[in-house]
Each structure stands twice: as structure tokens, then as C-alpha cells.
Design a protein around this nucleic acid. Structure first.
Length: 711
RNA sequence: GGGCGCUUAGCUCAGCUGGUCUAGAGCGCCUGCCUUACAAGCAGGAGGUCACUGGUUCGAAUCCAGUAGCGCCCACCA
């Protein structure tokens, strides 16, 4: 209800479309406001409108009677109010709403706390409501308004209310006294550290998030009403106004000498101790050796949701207490989520028990799986219901390392191992190849680790290098040599190479699969005269060895692989049983591959499972499987009686179609004037080379096909 | 409401400075193998209009804009 003195203004306002205004049958003016929490009206100390809202301009400053309370409160204006929401008029409850609290501070309003800590109506509420719970009071207030004919009705309004993260109870804001830390002076150096690159973030997008928060820094409430924690070191004197802040428990008030001191019942926010972590773990505030040796640290690895709570505050504390940043890099890893995208958490109970994973798949499998899933800036989705799907690959890899390691140790035997430099002259293609691959892999993996590209490390080092190159090819290639079948010099060269490579790969893999690599490395013989580090975990990280990098060995072995793979593929295509010995004929051998072929003849026979290999080009008119490799090399498997000619023709046609497509693509590019003139020379050259190779293969295949058409 | 991210094979995801990408891996699937390191394995295979539309460029999964869908974080209007 409005005081009669304001009725004139009300009438004028109503003419301007003031929606909140109404009039009783008796002609009394009143205001209607809406709320989702009717009981809070008992604590209202104003009604607010927007300063630019013409409809209500005349009413600002008038008094209204607040029903049920006997109190009179003013209409005020504040920019917070949204004129387009509801009637454009808001009730203001400073003690029980954060926004209203701010409005009250700006407008010098009263604060009336009508709730007890237990969320019952306090002595500040009208007597008839005192002691009621808030929900009970809500009903009672509505009923009381209704009884007085002051209730305008209700309307559905969907909004979100804060709930306790543990018990789900609706949280009511309530005025209280808390300790705060003034943050602006602390934030400044922490912001500067990011701006000037002293502290960097990976992925880089977190840099902006960090800086935005510090630029809009708010004071930090450090009081917590919890049972556990560091108690706030403040004592209040019961006999005077003195407050004592002290490290030691004071016994008497320094102001009046009273002994009646009472410590603040609250405890400190957990982060108030956690932000000291980078140096408190080293014994700070004592100037310990550890602190000198290890502070500042290098990289902090942490989760995105505590970037502000913890990371930013550690940087602040670092500068504040030690004058130096606590770490140079912050790596923000992904969050592990369940199938529905929910963060795995104890309270949701949607997590995976790491101990169960360790039990079923092994600790290395757990670690490896998470690393191989850790794409930069991406979350990790795992299905708690299907651990097999998530962790089997990790277990399989660890198992592979174990088996390859067992084989390595067994094959090396006991004799002394020569350092690689001493067997240099005896190194064979496979040795030179794997050393070359090792050096390149080392360089790549080191770079990937430095850039936190952990999943790339898993892919390149574990799958491509260890499994795909070392286990699948090198170990297979050197088996006979390790058995001594190619002579002692060859055996020693292979042993030396294998020890070198296995030692290095254990060091590289150690961060991914620490347990299995340690178990193997401890038993790995070391070359004569080479010092053995104390333990794998402290063994120096391998460096790339540029003199090992050997493009000829790599291309030679690649050609050998292609040859072997093609033979295997053809055998399979025509269902040639494992046991059945067949012969292989190779033609058009490139000059550069002749030497390799001679030397690796045995490897070829063994790995392609062919009984004999002949070099020649008398394939014309003969029945069998034909193929042409990238280098133009031709191969022929005489399979008369086994091969189905229709199938062979179809296969050749398929090959021809594939090559024609590739050739067409390359030729189209090369026919494009602007490609030839604008693309870098080497790109054009490469395209030319591709086209040439496609054409050569194509010509040969077409010839073979036409050869068969007549048969 | 503000900010950010994602969309590529049946599934989970790589693909960095545009050109070896007619696009890879693991799992799953098909075929053949218990080959004295490994069947949790070996060998061979099938499977993709790179969400859509437009733009930039000699050239786009990749860069830009828009659209659709999915998701995360922060704030929260009585």
C-alpha cells in the first residue's frame, strides 16, 4: 500500500503504464511485486525500479507500507533492475540475496537478517512467524497475505536455486561476518607473470582464462564453517573490542588485559593452505636445502577446474612469500568422464576404481591407457561398465613389451656385449635401419613430450616404433643372426645393436610403462665398458644420434618390407597354405636395391615364406600372380593350378583402376598451369615423380593383364 | 546470459606449420595360422560424401565465416 501523499504520483505513473501499480475498490493505491521466496518479504527494506524507467520515475522516493511487518520502506532506483522483466519493479531483501545486498550498499538501505543459522525465522521477523522454518514461513506468509486480500496470485516461473553440493539442501543467502583477503595487490604480479610469459599454459587457451580471472579479481572469503581445517588465528576479547591476530595462542587481551579471549570458531578455506604447497612441501618458512634446490619447480600438471582456486593462488603466494613464480609451465590435462560426459566423481559414484584396474589389467596398463587417451585439450571418456574396452589395449601393450623383452634377454645370452662403435663394420641393413629409426623416434618423442602431446608419444613410440618396427620387423629379421646362423661377427653386431636399442627404448618408454620397463632393464646386459646408471628412472634421457640416421638404410628396408608384404598378400589372396613351399621371381630390380636383395635373400625367403627366390624377368605368358611395386620392381609367383585366372584378372583390373585414379589426380594437378607456377618447386617435383611412378606401374600391369586376357 | 571446446571408419580417437592425406591407430568385424618371445599373439583384409553451406588458396580434414547438433566451464534476474 502507498501512503496517501503518494497517490497523486501513483495516478500519474499509472497513466505512464506502471504495471506494478494497482488500486483497491476503495481507491487506495498499492504496488504488486513478485518473488519466488515470499517469506523473504519480511526482510525487505526497499522496492527498486530502474533509473531510466519512465513509468516509475515519479514514484522514486515515495514510501510504501510493507504488509505483515508494520514497516515502511522506500521506492528506490538502481541500474540492476531489468525494466523488461516482470513488472519492472523488484523487492529488495539485502540480507538474503547477493544482488539485493549490492543494491542496498549502493543505496544505503537497511540490512535486516530475518533468518537464524538454521534457516528459521529470526527475532527480526514479525512475532507470529518467528521460529518457523523457511518453507513453513513461506506458506504462512502467503496465507497471511491472502487473508488480508493482498495476495495477487501465483505464476509458474522456472529458475535455478543453489543447492548444497553434498546434501542437496537449498541454500539461503544470509548476511554474516567473514574474513576476506584483499586480492588486488596479490593478483597483479600473478597476472604479470602470464602476460610476460614467465608462466605459460598448455593448452594455450587457458592463458586467457587465467588472465581474465585475475583482471577481474574479487576479494577472497577465507572463513569456512566446517569442523576440519586450520582454525582462523583471530581472538576476540569479550571485555573490549580488541581483536588479536597471533601465531601463538594469546592468554590475555593486549587492550584491556582481560583473559576472556575467544578464538574465531571458523576455519580457513582449504585453498588458503594449499596455495602454499609449492614451497611448504620443501620446509618453508625455514630456508631449507630442499627449498633452495627445488624452488621454483618446472611444470605443474593439474585439472582445469582448479585453475583459479589453486593454480592462480599458488602463483600469487609464490610471488608474495618468495618473490618468485612457483613453476614455469602449467599443463592442464583433460577430465575423465563417463559415457554420458559426466565428470567421474565420488559423489556421483560413476568413477572407475583404479585398484580394480590395476588388479585386472596392471598398473602399466592403467597408466598407458590414460596417456594414450590424453590428447591435448581433450577430455577422456571411459566406460566404467566396460573396463575391458578401455584398458585392454594398455595391458596388451605392456604384455608385448614383456614378451619382446623376454625374447631379447633370452637371445642376447650371457656373453659380453660389444659397444656399437666396435661392431660398426659388421652392422647389417636391419641394424643400421633400427638405429636410424631409434634416433628419429627419440627426437620426435622428446619433442612431443615437451609439448605435452602425450597421446602422440604413445602412438609413435609404443605402437609405431616399439611394436611396429622393433618387434614386428627388427626382432624377426635378426632371429637367425642371434642364433649364430650367420656367423659370429653378424651375431655380435646384432647383439650390440639390440642392447643399444633396447636400453634406449626402455628409457623412452619408462614414463609410459614404468614397471615392465624397469623389470626388463634391470636384467639387460650392458656393453663392455659402459657405465650402468643406478636405476632406470634416473638413467639419462636418450639423445638422438644424427650419425645413425641413415636414409639409404630406411629406404632399403622399406623396399624389402614392401616386397615381403606383397608376397604375403598374394599368398593370402590365392589361399596358398602356410606349409606349401612356393618360389618367387623378381624382375626389374632397381640398381639401388640389388645389393640389399643379395644380402637379405634369406630374410626375404623366411619372412615371405617362399622356398626359393630367382631374379629374372621371364614372366610373359606364364600362369601365376603378378605384381608391380612402387619402385617399378616386378614380382611373380608361379601358381599354375592354384590360381584362378578370372580372379587374377579381376585383381589386376582393380589395381589398374586404383592406379589410374591416382595418376589422374597427379596429372590433373600437373596440367594446372597455376599449380606448376605457384606451388613450391619441390612439391611440383614430388608430384612429377608420383606421376612417373604411377605410369610405370600402370604400364606394366596393363601389359600383364593383356597377357592374361588371351590365356 | 558470458566464455570455451567438439563433430573424421561400427565404437573411442589421432591427424601439429595447408601439399607423402585417394585420410591413420586401438577396439570391434572377416579370413588363415597354437610359425620354440608373445593366441592378451602373428599374417592378410573389409570398412570413411573428414557434420552441412559458402569463402580464401594453385591446392582445404587442416585456414575463415555462417548453419545444425553435442558438450564443458563461469555467472545467474527478483
Amino acid at each position: 500500500p502507498l501512503h496517501e501523499s503518494a497517490w497523486k504520483a501513483a495516478e500519474a505513473s499509472a497513466a505512464r503504464g506502471a504495471e506494478a501499480l494497482g488500486r483497491t475498490d476503495e481507491g487506495h493505491w498499492y504496488l504488486t511485486v513478485s518473488t519466488t521466496r515470499p517469506e523473504t518479504m519480511l526482510g525487505d527494506t526497499a522496492v527498486a525500479v530502474h533509473p531510466d524507467d519512465e513509468r516509475y520515475a515519479l514514484l522514486v522516493g515515495v514510501d510504501v507500507e510493507l504488509p505483515l511487518t508494520g514497516r515502511t520502506i522506500p521506492v528506490i532506483s538502481d541500474a540492476f533492475v531489468d525494466p523488461d522483466f516482470g513488472t519492472g519493479m523488484v523487492k529488495v531483501t539485502p540480507a538474503h540475496d547477493p544482488n539485493d545486498f549490492e543494491i542496498a550498499r549502493r543505496n544505503d538501505l537497511e540490512f535486516l537478517d530475518i533468518l537464524t543459522p538454521e534457516a528459521r525465522m529470526s527475532e527480526n521477523a514479525p512475532e507470529r512467524f518467528q521460529g518457523m522454518g523457511r518453507f513453513e514461513a513461506r506458506k504462512a506468509v502467503v496465507a497471511a497475505l491472502e487473508a488480508q486480500g493482498l495476495y495477487a496470485g501465483e505464476k509458474l516461473h522456472t529458475h535455478q536455486v543453489p543447492h548444497c553440493y553434498r546434501c542437496g539442501t537449498v541454500v539461503e543467502p544470509r548476511l554474516s561476518e567473514q574474513w576476506f583477503v584483499r586480492m588486488a595487490p596479490l593478483a597483479h604480479p600473478a597476472l604479470q607473470a602470464s602476460l610476460d610469459g614467465t608462466v605459460t599454459f598448455a593448452p594455450t587457451r587457458w592463458k586467457k582464462v587465467y588472465e581474465d580471472w585475475l583482471e577481474n579479481i574479487r576479494d577472497w572469503c577465507i572463513s569456512r564453517q566446517l569442523w576440519w581445517g586450520h582454525r582462523i588465528p583471530v581472538w576476540y576479547c569479550r571485555d573490549c573490542d580488541e581483536q588479536v591476530v597471533s601465531r601463538d595462542d594469546p592468554t590475555a587481551c593486549p587492550g584491556c588485559g582481560s583473559q576472556r579471549l575467544e578464538q574465531d570458531p571458523d576455519v580457513l578455506d582449504t585453498w588458503f593452505s594449499s596455495w602454499l604447497w609449492p614451497f611448504s612441501v620443501f620446509g618453508w618458512p625455514d630456508a631449507t636445502d630442499d627449498l633452495r634446490a627445488f624452488y621454483p619447480t618446472h611444470t605443474l600438471s593439474t585439472a582445469p577446474e582448479i585453475l583459479f582456486f589453486w593454480v592462480a593462488r599458488m602463483v600469487m603466494a609464490g610471488y608474495e612469500f618468495l618473490g618468485e613464480e612457483p613453476f614455469a609451465q602449467v599443463y592442464i590435462h583433460g577430465t575423465v568422464r563417463d559415457k554420458l560426459g559426466r565428470k567421474m566423481s565420488k559423489s556421483l559414484g560413476n568413477g572407475i576404481d583404479p585398484l580394480e584396474v590395476v588388479d585386472r589389467f596392471g598398473a602399466d596398463a592403467l597408466r598407458f591407457t590414460l596417456i594414450s587417451a590424453a590428447g591435448v585439450g581433450t577430455d577422456i571418456y571411459l566406460d566404467p561398465e566396460d573396463l575391458e574396452a578401455s584398458f585392454a589395449p594398455g595391458r596388451n601393450f605392456a604384455n608385448k613389451v614383456w614378451n619382446a623383452g623376454r625374447f631379447t634377454l633370452m637371445s642376447l645370452g650371457d656373453g659380453p656385449v660389444a659397444p656399437p662403435s666396435e661392431v660398426d663394420d659388421d652392422l647389417e641393413l636391419a641394424d643400421r635401419w633400427i638405429l636410424s629409426r631409434l634416433s628419429r623416434t627419440t627426437a620426435q618423442v622428446t619433442r612431443d613430450l615437451e609439448r605435452f602431446r602425450l597421446h602422440e608419444v604413445a602412438e609413435r613410440l609404443a605402437y609405431e616404433f616399439f611394436w611396429g618396427e622393433l618387434a614386428d620387423w627388427y626382432l624377426e629379421l635378426v632371429k637367425p643372426r642371434l642364433r649364430g646362423e650367420a656367423g659370429e661377427a653378424s651375431r655380435q653386431a646384432a647383439r650390440s645393436t639390440l642392447v643399444t636399442v633396447f636400453d634406449a627404448v626402455c628409457r623412452l618408454l619408462h614414463p609410459l610403462v614404468p614397471f615392465v620397463t624397469t623389470a626388463l632393464w634391470n636384467r639387460l646386459p650392458f656393453p663392455e665398458g659402459e657405465g650402468r646408471p643406478e636405476d632406470l628412472i634416473v638413467a639419462p634421457w636418450p639423445d638422438p644420434v644424427p650419425i645413425w640416421e641413415n636414409p639409404e638404410a630406411e629406404s632399403g628396408l622399406a623396399a624389402l618390407q614392401e616386397l615381403i608384404t606383397e608376397v604375403r598378400s598374394l599368398r593370402k589372396e590365392y589361399g596358398v597354405k602356410e606349409g606349401r613351399g612356393i618360389s618367387l621371381e623378381i624382375g626389374a630390380v632397381p640398381e639401388s636395391f640389388r645389393g640389399t636383395l643379395d644380402v637379405e635373400m634369406r630374410s626375404l625367403q623366411r619372412l615371405a615364406s617362399v622356398e626359393s627366390v630367382a631374379i629374372g624377368d621371364e614372366f610373359q605368358g606364364r600362369i601365376g600372380a603378378h605384381a608391380v611395386l612402387k619402385s617399378g620392381m616386378e614380382l611373380f609367383l608361379p601358381l599354375e593350378g592354384v590360381i584362378d585366372l578370372d580372379q587374377e584378372r579381376a585383381r589386376l583390373r582393380g589395381e589398374i583402376r586404383r592406379l589410374e585414379g591416382q595418376l589422374a589426380g597427379a596429372e590433373k594437378k600437373l596440367a594446372n598451369e597455376s599449380f606448376v607456377s605457384r606451388a613450391p618447386q619441390e612439391v611440383v617435383e614430388r608430384e612429377n615423380e608420383k606421376a612417373r611412378s604411377f605410369r610405370e606401374q600402370l604400364d606394366k600391369l596393363i601389359e600383364k593383364l593383356s597377357d592374361l586376357e588371351g590365356a
